[in-house]
Design a protein around this nucleic acid. Structure first.
Lengths: 239, 239
DNA sequence: TAGGCATTTTCGTGATCACAATTAGATGCG
DNA sequence: CGCATCTAATTGTGATCACGAAAATGCCTA
């Protein structure tokens, strides 16, 4: 009996499966773990290993890993091993620029559809963010922040950018866990309030500026962390 | 023996599998079929049916369909049936706006990495596009056009937008087949030439304008088709 | 004691099987 | 003759198995 010594992963597997298949439950569990930085980049993820950790058959794991692969959350090395990709400073910068491009566009395209009741819901979601950060729960705060942005963008019923944005979030997720210092939280301007005001005034330009500033603030609060680049793999330039 | 009457699909399954697994071969075959509009939107795709058409076991089909699902190429109706999503005018417009946002950004970020030898390759790819259209091969022309754009964007070694752009292409793919009229080809301005000139001059602004114009030209040539909207499902507004 | 090679283990892939859910066709009632 | 119901075929999901390839382990030699 090979008692796998794999449990380098705690992997709180979300609350039990309500009704959705085992497949989706495994996917969401792994996704959550990725997003909260519970999986070490570079550590090889094996199908059978994860299957044992989550107490399911290898099949749902296989499908979840494939899905996460095509979403960019994990990558396949030389056609075999799968792992969370190493981050580089250049890729980090590209991902954040893409966030700005995509999310300012998504916000502007959602602006005409925003009704007063939606603004109320956004204020509620923004309050949840504050609560999470007051509890020093960085992971939950990050997820709540995504809920705020996602709800805004999805006001546009024809929105097609959200899956792409979520893919970017997923690629950045494993590295935001280092932003545990709430120091910058004290001094930061609440860009969400600015966004809400812009929404109220139906001011597309102000909305874009608020969203961009919000994203740049998050980036700055991460880059301000000393030693953050130690977690980035030096890029092997093969020009 | 249930002789499936499914062959509503011709599905020229690409050239045989060179060395990559059956999995990837199936995926690329389906992707190619999607891109060339060989699969009727709304027609239900079944795992076992496709498995019989491609003469493989259901397993590679299952994985390919899942991957195409998370790329937005196909969608799952009420958690069971999978099919090419119906297009609406609103979604069409959103997808093209997203193309412009993503591709102008990708082009600009690739600009600093463009060397003379890359420009030569781009001219070669542009020539292939002309050849395809001269042969009235719309499908091949569309693929060649994607090769041109992809090669340009990938000059940036830290590019992260290309997978997202390919997802948009994949969602638009099944509907560009209607653009079979080469009438607009005669009068259109060659935006790729403009892009190449901008690249040569390292002019970011001109490059963005060329790429945006190129995309808008393609959109216009499709929308100019009378009756194209007959292929769009009227959107069911549930506000 | 360190390095090269062969054996063994582990892994991903692809195939087949069993089962619940859904759907399409058949049947019976009004 | 039309419609509701029931039955049977079909589908997606999840589990298990077999196989070739890649790694890890151990062994042997210099």
């Amino acid at each position: 009996m090979n008692a796998k010594s794999s449990p380098l992963l705690s992997l709180t597997p979300l609350e039990k499966t309500p009704d959705q298949g085992v497949n989706l439950w495994v996917y969401h569990s792994l996704r959550r773990a990725l997003m909260c930085g519970q999986i070490e980049p570079g550590l090889p993820l094996t199908i059978r290993g994860l299957a044992e950790v989550l107490h399911v058959s290898p099949m749902p794991i296989r499908e979840a890993l494939h899905r996460l692969t095509c979403e960019g959350a994990v990558e396949v090395r030389d056609n075999r091993r799968v792992m969370v990709p190493q981050m580089t400073a250049a890729r980090f910068k590209e991902l954040y620029e893409l966030r700005i491009v995509l999310e300012t566009h998504a916000a502007e395209s959602a602006l005409p559809y925003c009704r007063p009741e939606h603004l109320a819901e956004l204020e509620r979601l923004d309050h949840l963010i504050d609560l999470a950060y007051q509890n020093n729960d960085t992971g939950e705060g990050s997820l709540a922040n995504q809920d705020f942005h996602r709800y805004l963008y999805q006001r546009n019923p024809f929105q097609v950018a959200v899956p792409l944005i979520e893919s970017i979030w997923l690629q950045l997720g494993p590295f935001v866990r280092f932003a545990k210092n709430k120091l910058t939280q004290h001094y930061r301007i609440d860009r969400h309030k600015e966004a809400l005001q812009a929404l109220h005034q139906q001011n597309a330009f102000a909305l874009r500026r608020a969203i961009e500033a919000d994203i740049r603030d998050g980036l700055a609060s991460i880059q301000a962390l000393e030693g953050i680049h130690a977690h980035f793999k030096e890029q092997a330039l093969s020009a």
